[in-house]
Design a protein around this nucleic acid. Structure first.
Lengths: 346, 346
DNA sequence: TCAAAAAATGAACACGTGTTCATAAATTTG
DNA sequence: CAAATTTATGAACACGTGTTCATTTTTTGA
């Protein structure tokens, strides 16, 4: 670990000089591209470790026209599910040898600037975990041959893949559970300005319920909240308690709403599963805790992350693949708010 | 937005050609460095927007020997406080015109590889939100003139600054609150393998309690959990209920432990503030919810993030500043588990 | 109007890597 | 052993920007 004079960082040229070879040989050794004799290779590696050489990724990326960065667009990390999704993505990105360029974005105009910065860094891919990717910006990515993947969303943008939890499967599991535990009417709870995935969960649920004639349309109630998150769910419960129409089982678009609704009901003297049943989405840590023990749909963030990176890599190699829409299986975690029953129908 | 042939990305050379000037003029225009005549500047900017030109950050960073990236080391994002800290850091990083290179790290060996990759990207700074920065790696950063800042931790590494919530202030606030609300004995709850900040919170608390002769040493109880997080707190409560020595007020190293302990006590038929009082740390969203309404110390992640970036920028300009240790004021949020009282002493 | 000062400009170099291509060395083949 | 083939090597170019420096143009001052 010798120190070069005037603290200039050590370059491939220095290594070549010490090893007594050309700089091209050094480059070939580290990029594993082209052939280099075994014994000169060890000479080079020795010299490199002696000098503490490490590749300059900026120069490498400039030359290759592609950095080993992957842009990740996130929003509202305060939602525990979103942060757990980010955690899974980071883990997978690093496992594959990339680095995550994470950007938080609030509005759609920021999103434009953000994606532009991604292209300026010549990222190997873009992951959109939230917000709708604007069509023209995506086009720009496609021009630069940068693959884009969206999570929990589906749009018809050519050359953009989507990975989404299987909302239809979730709806089936939930309706089955409600039936098995004796519900005769069901409700759907969601935020007014919900994301696509939230809306889709509601649509598939209604479809399963109505199409299969499981419940009459009159036995189905929609509760749409003005606020998002915990507080939105809580206030919705207060309003719900004042109104006449009640249902046995309530399915929620996400965990925050579910926890808030449950707490709101408790404030009014009602509790699950005694007075009603409730099933949430996301299976965040909080839902499993003693104060909630919420029956919930579990999203598999780990395999979601894996599929996302697979999509990025395959499209990186061949940009003209047909658009993919991958659905990730979900599980029903049965806890206290919609309990196990013994009379399970097929 | 004309498309160049064979999809090559548009470069400063193209802009220069269209504007009828030299490439140097284009560079000067966009880097705001050196002088360029007003009317040629507009010519250049027009040409640039017409072609859709955008600076290649890799080339720029290679030349400047410094990218506009800032490396952020995170861990355990499942903890809501950590994700809210990350959120604040991201927001501040972007506001200052940087981009966040986020890496999740589990063990100390990974941390070495991680920081090395940061230097390979010529980052403008490194933020360590968790884990102890290994001395030799930090030295490597210092060699490259890369400023390093640690959060909620204090070590005597030269040229590394630290930003930390004011644990002493927290201890004072907590002890005052316990006294005002009538506690005669107090306890401290923490995880066995706690981070530095957790240990420091306990040390300062004990110091305040004992040194000021507020309580006798015999009225002070330490509860050290085997497990971390919610489950650790919950099990600790179960054990605590079995033992003889009890205390009136319990101060917790973090929010997860506090929520778990509270729930564990409830499972055993005890609740706050009826049977005991409990004060947490972090003020995560969950602690404010109806099922907990936890009195808690609030960490100001926003000003923490601001200070961190100020440290990075100042040290970036002058690497030889003396080491700084900035303490961020905290607030006590009084809720249900250690309620307001009217007889407030001075 | 003319000299002196200031501002603007372009050529050229540097940043550190990957890759092509022609050549040299080593290996295989008949 | 000579010829043919494979492998290893270094010179040179490309990636796209910032910056220095000498030169040209414009502005200032009397």
């Amino acid at each position: 670990m010798k120190k070069t004079q005037n603290s200039r960082s050590v370059t491939a040229e220095d290594v070549a000089q010490l090893a007594g070879v050309s700089r091209a040989a050094v480059s070939r050794t580290f990029s594993n591209n082209g052939s280099v004799a075994p014994k000169t290779r060890v000479k080079i590696i020795q010299a490199a470790s002696e000098l503490g050489y490490q590749i300059n990724f900026l120069a490498q990326g400039l030359n290759r026209k592609r950095s080993q960065l992957i842009g990740v667009i996130v929003a509202r990390l305060s939602d525990p599910f979103r942060s757990s999704l980010l955690e899974a993505l980071l883990s997978e990105i690093q496992r594959k040898g990339y680095q995550a360029l994470v950007t938080e974005v609030q509005g759609a105009d920021e999103l434009e600037m953000t994606i532009r910065r991604f292209t300026q860094f010549r990222v190997s891919g873009v992951i959109v975990t939230s917000g709708q990717p604007p069509a023209d910006l995506v086009k720009e990515c496609v021009q630069h041959n940068i693959p884009v993947v969206g999570i929990n969303r589906h749009m018809d943008i050519p050359n953009v893949d989507f990975v989404c939890s299987n909302n239809n499967m979730a709806a089936l599991l939930v309706s089955k559970q409600f039936i098995n535990s004796g519900c005769t009417s069901v409700g759907w709870l969601n935020y007014k300005g919900s994301t696509w995935s939230g809306i889709n969960r509601g649509d598939t649920f209604r479809q399963v319920i109505i199409n299969k004639n499981i419940f009459n349309e009159s036995d189905f109630l929609e509760i749409i909240t003005e606020l998002d998150g915990y507080e939105g769910g809580r206030r919705a419960a207060h309003d719900y308690c004042k109104q006449i129409k009640k249902v046995d089982g309530i399915y929620c678009a996400n965990a925050q709403l579910a926890c808030g609704f449950l707490d709101g009901m408790r404030e009014n003297g009602f509790d699950a599963p005694i007075n009603f049943q409730i099933i949430g989405f996301d299976n965040t840590l909080q839902t499993s805790q003693y104060s909630y023990r919420l029956t919930t749909i579990h999203q598999d963030v780990s395999t979601t992350a894996q599929r996302v990176l697979t999509c990025l890599e395959t499209r990186g190699q061949n940009p003209h693949i047909i658009q993919r829409f991958e659905e990730i299986p979900v599980k029903l975690i049965i806890r206290n708010t919609s309990p196990h029953t013994d009379n399970i129908r097929t």
